[in-house]
Amino acid sequence: MAGRRGQIAAMPRHCPAPLPLLDLALPDAAATDAFAERLAPLLRGGDALLLTGSLGAGKTQLARAIIQTLQAAHGTPEDVPSPTYTLVQEYQAGALHIVHADLYRLAGPGEATELALDDLWDTALCLIEWPDRLGDAAPRDALHVTLAQDGEGRRLVLSSANDGWAARLKSLAPC
């Protein structure tokens, strides 16, 4: 694998598990969009967000709102369709290269390798739905975003094994 994060395949099995950083109730779609608007400015090239949750949990909605928020700072945001069938969609927000991938239809890491996402870990903002398909190739320092249906709304949990995320996300914590 290429890139500093692409070294994951050689990573020992005793790597630290992601630690919870934030746990929020998002009562409706508007709350999900509002959270994305607060998160987006904290993201940069080289970041990977691994979006996990069941079908309909809000992964694509969150990714769409992040992408459109970043693009709005540089003009009119694009339409952001789900990449379920295309697998990977790419966007620009000023100089920031954004990759939105939906790996749901892949059988596993072998097929994910063919997408060459590891070539982008160091430079692009990568929003990856169904990251379990990456296996050991998932970037170790990613921000794990877990979404679950919670009544009429959603529960969002952010976690990471990378200590740097805690400081960057501090402003997102509820008062």
Rank of each mutant, 00 (worst) to 15 (best):
E114Q: 12
L158W: 03
G151N: 05
P174N: 00
T86G: 09
R64F: 12
R133M: 10
A116K: 05
G135L: 12
S82G: 05
E78D: 15
R133P: 03
T69W: 08
A63Q: 10
T60Q: 09
Q68F: 08
P81N: 10
E129N: 09
V157S: 00
L87V: 11
A148S: 15
P81F: 08
D163G: 14
T60Y: 06
A161P: 15
L169T: 04
D118V: 01
S82R: 14
E90K: 13
A148M: 14
S159V: 00
V145T: 05
R168M: 02
G110K: 07
V80F: 07
L115Q: 11
L134F: 07
D150M: 09
A116T: 02
G110Q: 12
L156G: 00
L127N: 15
V145N: 02
V157D: 00
A116E: 12
P81G: 09
V99L: 13
A65H: 08
S159Q: 00
R154E: 04
E129S: 13
L87E: 06
L96V: 05
H97P: 13
A101P: 12
G110W: 02
L62H: 03
G153T: 04
G164R: 11
L70D: 03
E152V: 14
D136G: 07
L103E: 03
A72R: 15
